[in-house]
Design a protein around this nucleic acid. Structure first.
Length: 516
RNA sequence: GCGGGAGUAGCUCAGCUGAUAGAGCAUUAGCCUUCCAAGCUAAGGGUCGCGGGUUUGAAUCCCGUCUCCCGCUCCA
């Protein structure tokens, strides 16, 4: 049932130019998607709603746009390099997963065991006069094993050094390593499980450095903390907001645009005095939920999910979850990140990252409260919340399904469609005149093809909140009809009033008024 | 990653056990003019995901591969 709606939503997103699979004509690229002509408008509007609510509405929050490429040491400091960087291999029979390097180390240990056994035996035989070093260097069986060990060890070290995964697998095959559970040698390829994408910077092979595509935008804010604080003369508490792309090489990326390998984040890091972070955490929690609720998708569809297990950097964490067709899922996270990140960067960079508190007369590393929302998840949430299939009955008693995207007007990709009732008698020209007057302020669309009812439905499908129709009366008194997407009702209004009507209707101000 | 299902026109799908690729909607052009889809006429659009194999002949059978969906697993 719910699944059905989700499928329809995916199909609708494609059919009406919201979301396309990346590289579709080449069979697609896993978990990467493109935004189409309507999708990009909706996405931009979502970003604007967030950006303005953060940066414009808060005197002490400023923006930033940091680069995707960053110094590789940043990811050591943040913990991303060590956190998840192992060569893994699966046994196809037991379906158990092992670290390939550990399996090889065990093979090495086995050889060591063999040699030790020989040594022990000899020790017993010769007693006190036994010279272990000499024995090891002369006994043919020990020497053979030592040679094997040396060769294997070198091969292993080289493979690790070059991150040569094929070689690691070959070692496991050559050493006839078996799975302790299934006892089989039926292995998958060795895969490097690193959530970060890497690339080379520098055009010559010798001079090239491995750098990573950022797996989160937050670090770009932390490393610019001093720049912004000093040049902006910012006083604690203050925040830095950023919207940008991040990349994660997910093992399992699923559910349409919910979990993608390339995605966009809207993050705000709020720097506070140590000891006050939990109060601010609470405050931002309320602010953020009110931002979601202001869109009018129903308060009951949102809930908080408090984290019990906390990440290494956090002392409090909560998710804002929305009731998707496939269940309650996270759209935003609010985390109290303590002073972990700034302290780490202070250590790794050797630069002091502190704030001089004029009240206390002393310096400290600020604590951080983060709000982090996925643009793409938010996009999916808005689509899911707006998609309706309405059953209508026309005056002949015929049943009919109307697909309508009840997008908040401020977010709608197209704000206004202007169309001539029929495409002659000067009506098209008049319609274009109206568009020319409005197109700089509102995203408008012209349509003259097919019956007026059909054109209204097309606009419903992409969530256009208003349709203006030019008819024969327009030439007489300069009025048009304006038809509302949600009620399907219409009013007759003067052309000269359209700008004002539209301005009020598509403004984000009413949304902002509801924010805490 | 494992298991299951799927991939045929822009969308939704039909095409049974091998023999010249279909429908509805959508699109384009023309006619008609009518404020809530489905009026008339015509047209365009698919080497049936891709590669290989079996066969006189493959959308259909076999193998591989890619992508999507569901479940499990993994992870923040």
């Amino acid at each position: 049932m719910a699944d059905d709606i989700f499928k329809k939503l995916v199909a609708h997103s494609k059919e009406y130019g919201f979301v396309f699979q990346s590289s579709e004509i080449y069979d697609g690229l896993g978990a990467v998607y493109d935004y189409g002509q309507n999708g990009v408008e909706l996405k931009n509007n979502i970003k604007k709603y967030w950006w303005d609510s953060m940066v414009k509405l808060h005197e002490n929050v400023v923006g930033l746009d940091s680069a995707i490429f960053m110094h590789p040491t940043i990811w050591k400091a943040s913990g991303h390099v060590d956190a998840f960087n192992d060569p893994l291999i699966d046994n196809k029979d037991s379906k158990k997963r092992y670290r390939a390097d550990v399996l090889i180390e065990e093979a090495l240990a086995k050889l060591e065991g063999k040699m030790d056994k020989e040594v022990d035996k000899a020790k017993k035989r010769f007693g006190d006069s036994f010279d272990e070093k000499q024995f090891r260097e002369t006994n043919p069986r020990v020497m053979a094993n030592q040679e094997k060990w040396n060769a294997l060890h070198k091969r292993f070290a080289d493979a690790l050094n070059d991150s040569n995964l094929e070689e690691l697998k070959q070692i496991i095959i050559d050493e006839e390593v078996v799975c302790p559970i299934s006892g089989s040698k039926n292995w998958t390829d060795v895969r490097q499980f690193n959530l970060m994408f890497s690339t080379e910077m520098g055009s010559t092979a010798e001079g090239a450095n491995t750098i990573y595509l950022r797996p989160e935008t937050a670090q770009g804010i932390f490393v610019n903390y001093l720049n912004v604080q000093k040049t902006g003369r910012m006083k604690l508490p203050f925040g830095i907001a950023q919207i940008g792309k991040a990349f994660r090489n997910e093992i399992v990326a699923r559910q349409f645009i919910f979990r993608m390998r390339e995605f966009e984040q809207m993050e705000m890091q709020f720097f506070v005095k140590p000891g006050t972070e939990l109060d601010w955490f609470k405050k931002w929690k309320e602010t953020r939920i009110s931002w979601h609720r202001a869109l009018g998708f129903g308060d009951e569809n949102y809930r908080f999910h408090e984290h019990e297990k906390l990440a290494h950097y956090a002392n409090a964490a909560v998710d804002v979850e929305y009731k998707f067709p496939f269940g309650f899922k996270e759209v935003e996270g609010i985390h109290s990140r303590t002073n972990f990140d700034l302290t780490q960067h202070q250590e790794f960079s050797g630069k002091k990252i502190q704030y001089f508190d004029p009240e206390l007369g002393e310096s400290y590393v600020p604590y951080v409260v983060e709000t982090s929302i996925g643009v793409d998840r938010m996009f999916l949430q808005v689509m899911a919340a707006s998609y309706f299939e309405e059953e209508l009955t026309d005056n002949k008693g015929q049943k009919d399904i109307r697909v309508v995207l009840r997008l908040p007007a401020a977010l709608a990709p197209v704000k206004l469609a202007v169309m001539p009732l029929i495409k002659k008698d000067g009506l098209p020209e008049k319609a274009r005149e109206i568009i020319d007057a409005l197109k700089f302020d509102f995203n408008c669309m012209y349509d003259e093809k097919d019956s007026i009812g059909k054109r209204y439905r097309r606009m419903d499908a992409i969530g256009t909140p208003f349709c203006v129709t030019v008819d024969h009366q327009t030439a007489e008194d300069n009025t048009v009809t304006i038809r509302y997407r949600d009620t399907m009702e219409q009013d007759r209004v003067e052309i000269s009033k359209l700008t004002e009507i539209m301005e009020n209707a598509v403004s984000m101000k009413p949304l902002f008024a509801k924010l805490k």
